[in-house]
Amino acid sequence: MTSSASRYLPFRALGELSETRYWMYLLLLPSLVLILLVIAYPTLYGMAISFREMRLTRPGLDGWVGFKHYAAMWSDPVFWIALKNTVVWVTAAVVLELALGLLTATALNRDLPGTKIFAVLILLPYFLPNVVAGHMWALLLDPRLGVINDILVRVGVLQTYKAWFADPNAALAATILVEAWHGFPFFALLLLAGLKSIPEDLYKAAAVDGAGVAAQLRLITLPMLKTVIAAAVILRVISLVNSPDLLLILTGGGPGDATQVLSLYAFQTAYKEFNFGYASALSVVMFVILMIFAVAYIRMSRITKE
């Protein structure tokens, strides 16, 4: 009996440890290690590279160059075009997605027969990987084979087939529409969850008080969805700024630089020109812009106060 008490019991030791304050750190350790390895280290390394020359095509140039890449960026016209395009692309896409998402969520919230099937169908675009969605739309909008051109010509909107991604004016708009199609279910899903949490009584009270649909949207729906909208917008903006894949497939940044955005520019600089130093500098600038955006947006929408 006494011998068994002195034996090493791993589970008992663990149990005793779980009563101490070190337990919390122990539980956090695995995810902390993972974050350090997979996120913190690459991020910091990327930042370090932005101050170095690192061209795989010219290995001899390796070395610290200070702010050279940032200075080059300042006078790089493509950077400014990409920055402008990023702002236009992300803003337009998010606004469209938010509007479409709100519309969809409101419709689905009605609980009419058949809405369950619609809820699943409407989510389909979001389930498609960017790459698949991109190729699908590239085909749909193809200047010679595209179904969209065919339909528009038959309906009489267009005289002849249009090369959507070849026209600098149409290209950015077309990619925005494709992105809106792909991304709106994300908003629909989150906003639907938000709508479900608004008490029905509020709308009844508004009806008795004489508030119409527009007033109900302004006074009840939007304020009650504020937190959800803010979170969804931040998540979507971050994901859009950082994902070059859709544009890479649809336009590759062209024609010219008409659809060039920062993420795509950084990707091409790194993996086509193998200029990792400059690509890293571009990424750091994106990182800073996103940080500023997120902080400003959270402040503006005051979601942390409630």
Binding site: L202, A205, G210, M224
Partner: peptide, 17 residues
């Protein structure tokens, strides 16, 4: 509802937040 000249008090109070 607004034209019926009634006023209503709800279980969840339904105050505009």
């Amino acid at each position: 509802p607004k034209d019926r000249n009634i006023a209503m008090v709800f279980q969840s109070y339904a105050l505009y937040p």
